[in-house]
Design a protein around this nucleic acid. Structure first.
Length: 353
DNA sequence: AAAACGGGGAA
DNA sequence: TTCCCAGTTTT
């Protein structure tokens, strides 16, 4: 592998040849103009940002004009870009700059990071591009370039990994042409070292890029570990009715899933409805009619519900007080019911009457 | 349908 | 400190 000091010159030479240098925010690179562009570019592609940026700069050419504007007016200029909290943060930061910093952008990374909506990477981009400071960025583009160059074996979302990547980013940051280097790294990630279909053959770093030596460089950065597939559970639910079309509901325990709500009696899918119901409710089953099964998804598992409509003869035994109760169909729908239970009752009405 | 994105704010 | 979210695009 080539020494660290070869990295930036290659990137800069590529930038001189292929980088973008005529974007609206690339002339008159004041901290204010770079700041606005970086905030807009955080969430949106260059081609979308350009017209927004131009209109924004026409309306708010300076930090003073932005600070003096009404929030509604600022948000109107943001309309369509999304993440509106960032426009609000930006407006707040503009007021703070004018009121507390005499309209001057801070010189230090720490100072810039104090402003709402500006974190370490955005602060570094502003200072390197507008003031030539040697401050490294680590945005999504740079993370991808570095993760591939070193074939980083861990997910960059882990704080340990991200910390290591910050060290890499700072190690490669040159002391000259800092702004061009920042822009070059963003361009490299955006145009060559893309998430899918990277153009490794055109990349100035290809010779020493560890990922490019693997069969599939797009395996880097390592993807976020997807949380384990949700388990699947199955349950039968019974719409038990008596000779007056009333429905038997069961009050659930106050803790756990659907705590305190009224629900339908349940049984395992492999159990016989007739045997189970006749034993549990000490009566005779007159008929069983299947309703449509469906899936209900919780945050942590899928529940496949197999509902049936069951007509019972008069109850012979006494049931636990308060736990079970008969309700007319319309009364039942006024209760606190879990969503799938409400769905079954509505379905029951449609399919049987 | 799910991941990515950079920072804020809740836990 | 660490975790989760916003709102849209991309895959």
């Amino acid at each position: 592998m080539q020494p660290v000091e070869y990295f930036a010159p290659r990137v800069l030479a590529w930038f001189d040849e292929h980088g973008r240098k005529n974007l609206p925010w690339q002339d008159n690179k004041t901290p204010y103009r770079v700041w606005i562009s970086e905030i807009m570019l955080q969430q949106t592609q260059v081609t979308t940002v350009i017209p927004y940026y131009q209109k924004f700069m026409t309306s708010f050419p300076t930090v003073e004009t932005l600070a003096a504007a009404e929030q509604d007016e600022v948000l109107a200029h943001w309309s369509g870009l999304g993440y509106y909290a960032r426009a609000r943060n930006m407006h707040k930061a503009a007021k703070r700059l004018v009121d507390e910093f005499d309209s001057e952008f801070p010189q230090s990374l720490e100072g810039v990071c104090e402003l709402p909506g500006i974190g370490r990477s955005t602060a570094a981009a502003i200072l390197s591009i507008s003031r030539g400071k040697q401050t490294a960025i680590l945005d999504g583009n740079v993370k991808r370039v570095l993760a591939r160059f070193h074939a980083v074996p861990n997910w960059p979302g882990e704080k340990k990994t991200e910390q290591a990547m910050w060290h890499l980013a700072e190690a490669y940051m040159p002391s000259q042409r800092c702004g061009d280097y920042t822009q070059a790294m963003m361009d490299l990630g955006a145009t060559l070292c893309t998430r899918s279909k990277p153009q490794c053959l055109l990349c100035p770093l290809e010779a020493d890029c560890q990922a490019s030596k693997t069969p599939d460089p797009t395996q880097f950065p390592i993807r976020k570990p997807k949380k384990a597939a949700k388990p699947e559970k199955q349950i039968q639910m019974l719409v038990l009715t008596d000779d007056e079309q009333r429905i038997l509901l069961e009050k659930r325990p106050s803790t756990g899933i659907w705590g305190g709500l009224w629900s339908l009696p349940e049984l395992a899918v492999e159990e016989s409805i007739v045997l189970h119901a006749e034993q549990r409710f000490v009566t005779n089953v007159l008929s069983v009619t299947p309703l449509s099964p469906f899936r209900h998804t919780f945050s942590h598992y899928h529940l496949d519900i197999v509902p049936s409509h069951v007509k019972l003869a008069a109850l012979k035994g006494v049931m636990e007080a308060n736990k079970y109760q008969w309700f007319s169909h319309s009364d039942a729908l006024t209760l606190g019911l879990p969503t799938p239970v409400r769905r079954i009752l509505e379905q029951d009405l449609n399919e049987l009457n």
